[in-house]
Design a protein around this nucleic acid. Structure first.
Lengths: 245, 245
DNA sequence: CACGTATGAGAGCACTGCTCTTGCTCTGGA
DNA sequence: TCCAGAGCAAGAGCAGTGCTCTCATACGTG
């Protein structure tokens, strides 16, 4: 309100900025980050290319804005999947959130590549990408926290050598969780994006065919890895019984 | 011999092609794929930029050549680490190969991004990248095969829904291994590159500090996931005993 | 030896990111 | 109310890019 009442000029700036991002996102989705051209965006919007620099000081800044939006979009997808499954047990919620993240990635491959593929602008991400980038991870922390509070987590003991780093991470990320869970969580977080990335980037071509099924199973195993067990069959050990084959 | 004796012209072509790739690889390592410029390569080599097109018909073809080289390099790193550890038990070999792959990735981040980040040229990889891309995975298959033949693998039973796809993959990839192992192997393969990618691309910044230790532990857990157990403590179940925490 | 082909060089096209200058329009304070 | 300064748009222009075309030259095979 107050910001819109601040004059027609400020209002126009917001709208033009949004229009630029929208058109840029369209081109990104169609052709990929490499082919995103400021001049093409300006052309499509009917404005001079130089005028665009009033809104984004460089191409990298535009890309950074798109990166933040993409992190927020995939984070929102994870969060809304979690909210929709709020009635389910943690292990099921874990899998549903994994599937939502994967679905977003498959629906927006170029945006996914922008954030989880090679980071293109600069080598270190700008500071303001950090909070949006953390949203997906935080959903998994939340699920694990719930399970820890209710049924507890089934996890093997930490090897001695990992203990110092595990406790450091725990203090930083989730002091209310056991260190065994935090390390398992960070690993599962990274591993999840390995699975998704291989699918999005074509590494599973001619390898995995029924990717839905394969992914669901892999996500289930990740859940077991962080100590989440499906209800009413969780004994004292967290993994399905293993046999020698 | 016969190909080099085929005349000074053919010999020169091989050398110039190699020189172009070397210089391109240098620029790739320094600035990343986005900044790799044919003209700059030609300039550095003291030749006209148009002459370069006699050797690579387009920039994408040059990149594809670099991609194949990178796949071969990371594959060779995995294989030589495996050869060097041929005396060790499978679980230990698994971890050592994982660490070698990670070390290569950290030493060649831009080349790693080229092959496991966003695939930049086209959307589907050319056919001749497939065999080099498979080398790393094949090392892991070999390790698992050894363990299966000697001590066997400790793996949980497959869920019924996954069985068809698991048997499809097994027939395609490793008919001599149990389906439980093949699915676990494919998942672990993707998950490994999730761990490595997150480290190389900076996703672990401000999250994981002692990355060596963290990675070694994570690689160990991946080994357990495919049924590899360290010697003299492997009971009938494949994972370390889990407790409720 | 002569012919054809592989190679190199240069000019040129269309495109890119980005800067600078020139006008115009809106806005906040005297 | 008016007006200086800020915000904004447009155009020209620079240096760089991938790629194509033409033309000359040197090679090596008939």
């Amino acid at each position: 309100m107050s910001s819109t009442a601040r004059g027609v000029r400020a209002r126009a700036r917001i709208e033009v900025t949004a229009a630029i991002k929208d058109e840029a996102r369209r081109q990104l989705a169609e052709e990929g980050a490499a082919k995103l051209s400021l001049r093409a965006v300006a052309r499509e919007l009917g404005m001079a290319s130089s005028a665009l620099y009033r809104y984004f000081p460089s191409r990298d800044d535009l890309l950074t804005a798109l990166i933040i939006d993409a992190y927020n979009a995939i984070g929102a997808a994870a969060e809304s999947a979690h909210d929709a499954a709020s009635g389910s047990d943690p292990a099921r919620r874990w899998t549903l959130v994994c599937e939502a993240v994967r679905a977003w990635a498959l629906a927006h491959p170029h945006e996914y590549a922008l954030i989880y593929g090679s980071p293109v602008p600069g080598y270190t991400a700008p500071q303001d990408t950090v909070p949006p980038a953390a949203r997906v991870g935080q959903v998994f922390f939340g699920i694990t926290r719930d399970a820890h509070r209710s049924t507890g987590l089934a996890l093997p003991e930490l090897p001695a050598g990992l203990r110092p780093e595990a406790e450091r991470m725990t203090a930083d990320l989730a002091p209310d969780l056991p260190s065994e869970a935090v390390t398992a969580l960070v690993a599962a977080w990274a591993e999840l994006f390995g699975l998704i990335g291989f699918e999005v980037f074509g590494q599973f071509n001619r390898v995995v065919e029924d990717r839905e099924t394969f992914f669901r199973h892999a996500a289930d195993r990740l859940a077991r890895g962080v100590g989440l067990t499906p209800p009413r069959q969780g004994g004292s050990e967290g993994t399905a019984p293993a046999r020698r084959v």
